[in-house]
Design a protein around this nucleic acid. Structure first.
Lengths: 103, 103
DNA sequence: ATAATTTGGTTTATAAAATAAACTTGTTTA
DNA sequence: TAAACAAGTTTATTTTATAAACCAAATTAT
């Protein structure tokens, strides 16, 4: 009836990060921070969790002389996101086509 | 970009309860427990939170000699649920019609 | 040159939440 | 009438989210 919602994705900030990375494909730390409105500390922690789960990959490079943390979604992450959305639908009373179910 | 997700609804069990009450209109404690697979303690706590927020109303009656806790969603709760779903869409990359956005 | 500020984060501490375990009250059954 | 059960509630524990404090390197101001 109510499938489990992947706890890693059922988090406002982590979900926002994943959503962002799906549309942008890859993004730098400061950009993600700005788009999500997160504090740097919180973002750092949540990126770690996503990376540890293999949902994103984090590449640490340099942009000129400045460190640059680049994040990219992985196939595993994309699959997890899609599964999460599918599971959520059972809760939201919306069909795969998105219309609200009349009861 | 990423609207706040009502923390009261962004909880697996509370969301399941709300979803259930929307389709059944009203339901008894043991039924909700069975449908959601929650433990009684957890369910009791989460129902309290929803009731305190005015999202559901809880009526304590008797069914014969046994106590019977009946739950019903309120207009406030329904509105909150709809707002939550609308907010979630921004995260899920689905349009109001439900199709996945291609980037 | 060097002190102050900014950038780009990480680590650690705190606050809040979810969850289960233990308990209560009354009822039915052996 | 003692044991088991039903229907919850309360309390304690674990997990999670979040922010505050911190650090290193680079840039800017004096």
């Amino acid at each position: 009836m109510f499938p489990i919602l992947d706890p890693l994705l059922h988090s406002e900030l982590r979900l926002a990060v994943m959503s962002l990375l799906i549309t942008t494909n890859e993004a730098e730390f400061p950009y993600i921070k700005q788009q999500t409105g997160a504090t740097a500390g919180n973002l750092s922690v949540q990126l770690d969790k996503l990376a540890t789960a293999g949902y994103i990959e984090v590449e640490k490079t340099f942009k000129g002389k400045k460190p640059c943390t680049l994040c990219r979604i992985t196939p595993t992450g994309l699959k997890a996101f899609e599964d999460y959305v599918a599971a959520l639908r059972s809760y939201l009373n919306i069909s795969p086509e998105g219309d609200t179910k009349k009861d």
